[in-house]
Nucleic acid binder design. Structure first.
Lengths: 217, 217
DNA sequence: GCGACTTTGTGCCAACGTTCACAAGCGGCT
DNA sequence: AGCCGCTTGTGAACGTTGGCACAAAGTCGC
């Protein structure tokens, strides 16, 4: 039951949510927590939570629950965010600007090692205390700061090119906000966030609700 | 095989991606497309794509493929984005500002019916041509413009309160960017986007890659 | 009109994820 | 010490999702 067991993808996504809840419990001074309480805070079923945690090992005490601090440590280790991990952000338009200023990254284990943009007009400008660098420096920064994660917040047209540069510099994980499907080598992980897609999914459910109303008549 | 068949959640998420690809094909002047080509553009398996489309009906022509325009129309109808759907956005801080200025919403079937914030300092300010309104006007706008979707881009502390107000005004779908789990009635859909969670998932995979390297030694 | 070729639509099965239900284990109370 | 109540950890059933492989159905060339 040690780290040898493979952890399902769905579980990993939830571990991050548990960690968030645990952090606010530490702030609140809570010492122990039951699976039921934590599950409620994370918005999941308690059985699912226990099964998720069981992939990491057995840290709970039957009859009592989990020690918040211990659990937080375990999940942080599993996710690899015990020390700050460095990321680079490419594209400081509307969205990139917001991301650069988002405090949640630092507080949850990430450090922005560099901001980059292609547009000469914004290079040198400081955002949240960080200067925007030109693309030519990307490679240097990635290697010097040992960056493994890149965030793409450019328009769709530039995204694949930026992606290729990131990969060439040694980045092996990419978070993509541009609305296109990126082509990457097999060893590189990509996660995408498409805001319009999220809205369209909600729209679909609205559509269903409306149809359901008619069916009831 | 008509609209009576229930469409899996996973399929709905991909339909939005197909729609995006189809839109750029229309722009490119493409008339027909095979499942293989569209699947490639959307980054999925062609069998999966065909199965997804089969939930909507049989619009393809064997030996030829799909008529781009027809398919686009069908998916749009299914997702309920044939006409522009109205949304309200609450919270015009860093992220809300970026979202308000994001052109992808309008181009993919959404119209921002109103921007709202609690902070008196930003009320009245115009963002992307829209004025920021005070929270007291939320209810009026939602009802007048028949808004069914709300976007929450406030800090975590304010999110639940904003959510309650949205629900009270009649919003039945919420896209939540605040890092907390929202409590809502059963008839309300919530989708959450947590940027730090996305990074933590990538971090986990980086962790695994690093561990894998050691194991190879 | 007919045959060869192409591509769709789908039945089937394997893999994955979720939920239930309960035995095992621990703390506290008497 | 022994019992009781509480909570974990997990085996087993169930539902969902993914992917192969192939029959059905159409086009194109002759």
């Amino acid at each position: 039951m040690s780290e040898g067991r493979a952890i399902p993808e769905a579980t990993v996504a939830r571990l991050a949510v548990y960690l968030r809840a645990l952090n606010s419990m530490v702030d609140g001074g809570l010492v122990t927590v039951s699976s039921d309480a934590l599950a409620h805070a994370a918005g999941v079923n308690s059985a699912k939570l226990r099964k998720d945690l069981s992939y990491l090992g057995s840290f709970g005490t039957r009859g009592v629950g989990y020690v918040v601090e211990v659990l937080r440590e375990q999940i942080s280790t599993c996710l690899g965010v015990t020390e700050h991990r460095s990321v680079v952000l490419v594209g400081v338009g509307n969205l990139g600007h917001a991301l650069a200023g988002y405090g949640g990254f630092r507080s949850r284990g990430f450090r922005i090692a560099g901001l980059f943009d292609r547009d000469a007009a914004v290079i040198g400008e400081a955002i949240a205390g960080l200067p925007v660098l030109e693309m030519a420096e990307l490679d240097t920064v990635v290697r010097r700061e040992d960056v493994s994660i890149g965030v793409i917040a450019t328009p769709a047209a530039a995204a694949q090119d930026v992606c290729d540069r990131l990969v060439a510099s040694g980045v092996t994980s990419i978070l993509n906000f541009a609305p296109i499907v990126l082509a990457v080598p097999g060893n590189v992980d990509v996660r995408k966030v498409d805001l319009a897609v999220e809205l369209q999914i909600l729209s679909f459910h609205e559509q269903r609700k409306a149809a359901g109303l008619k069916a009831v008549l």
